[in-house]
């Protein structure tokens, strides 16, 4: 149903663009895009959500010459990565490094493999692909024992970060995630998993031709927690004493209720 509505929107959009004669854009090729939803609300029953990213390519380039890349990027944070090593027979966290800022969520979808769309320099410039995300090592890790990082180390930590995030479905690369219809319309479907970080997400749409960006649009998507969960989360972090007492109160009440309910005379 949502998909149908979105498609309708795409068609309307295309018609509008065509009728206005694309006069507003100086660029020969460009794209207009939108998403089916710009607000994701995480409630207690949240198990993930599908969003549709869609739009139209404006331009006069020959059929099949354009590629579209869609990037969705969550709020940036710093992350501490720990590496286990065997010590006295058991595996313990032995090394730690803090990387950041890196997005807590990152997804890229494209019409074909990224390597075929654009050269490394162009992808690195626009931070397309988890490999090309720019970050730095944040030095204030509490572990003094960790030796200084070599470039190989940084790569190892970054790769591990991407691997773990991919395992949680929070980082993804889909080389066939964007489909182009009739050389004009494009659409990409993305499943946002549970465990999403909260905050403002950036959506980016790139139109590539001959390995160069010829059209670009950006937008926002907000992921918020709602309802009882939000109240609990906010209270837990901002009024922790009250939250703790509330937890004890609930437990006391339940324990007392049970004692009354199951009282055997």
């Amino acid at each position: 149903m949502k998909t149908a509505v979105a498609f309708l929107a795409v068609i309307v959009l295309t018609v509008l663009c065509a009728s206005s004669g694309m006069a507003q854009k100086a660029q020969a090729n460009a794209l207009v895009a939108d998403l089916s939803k710009d607000q994701i609300r995480v409630a207690s029953n949240f198990t993930g959500e599908r969003i549709l990213l869609f739009g139209a390519i404006e331009g006069t380039s020959p059929a099949g010459a354009s590629d579209v890349v869609v990037v969705v990027r969550g709020p940036s944070e710093n992350f501490t990565l720990r590496r286990k090593k065997r010590m006295a027979g058991i595996w313990v966290n032995a090394e730690a490094r803090t990387l950041g800022p890196l997005p807590g969520y990152y997804a890229v979808a494209s019409t074909r493999a990224l390597a075929d769309i654009a050269p490394v320099s162009e992808r690195a410039k626009h931070q397309i692909g988890p490999k090309y995300l720019r970050f730095s090592l944040v030095s204030q890790t509490p572990e003094a024992a960790t030796p200084p990082a070599s470039p190989g180390d940084i790569a190892l930590y970054h790769d591990s970060f991407v691997r773990i995030k991919s395992g949680q479905n929070l980082y993804s690369v889909d080389p066939s995630g964007v489909s182009i219809i009739a050389d004009r319309l494009f659409r990409a479907e993305l499943t946002l998993p549970s465990g999403l970080p909260f905050g403002t997400y950036i959506t980016e749409f790139f139109l590539f031709e001959k390995g160069r960006v010829v059209g670009y649009q950006t937008g926002e998507l907000s992921v918020t927690i709602t309802g009882l969960e939000q109240w609990l989360r906010v209270t837990a972090h901002e009024m922790p004493l009250l939250y703790g007492l509330f937890g004890v109160f609930i437990a006391g009440l339940m324990g007392w209720g049970v004692a009354i309910l199951f009282r055997r005379v």
Binding site: F79, F161, I164
Partner: peptide, 18 residues
Amino acid sequence: DLVVEPAELFSIQRLEVG
């Protein structure tokens, strides 16, 4: 779990941005 080599040697902790 302590003795056998874990499949994933790395772990991530989000830094509290409080």
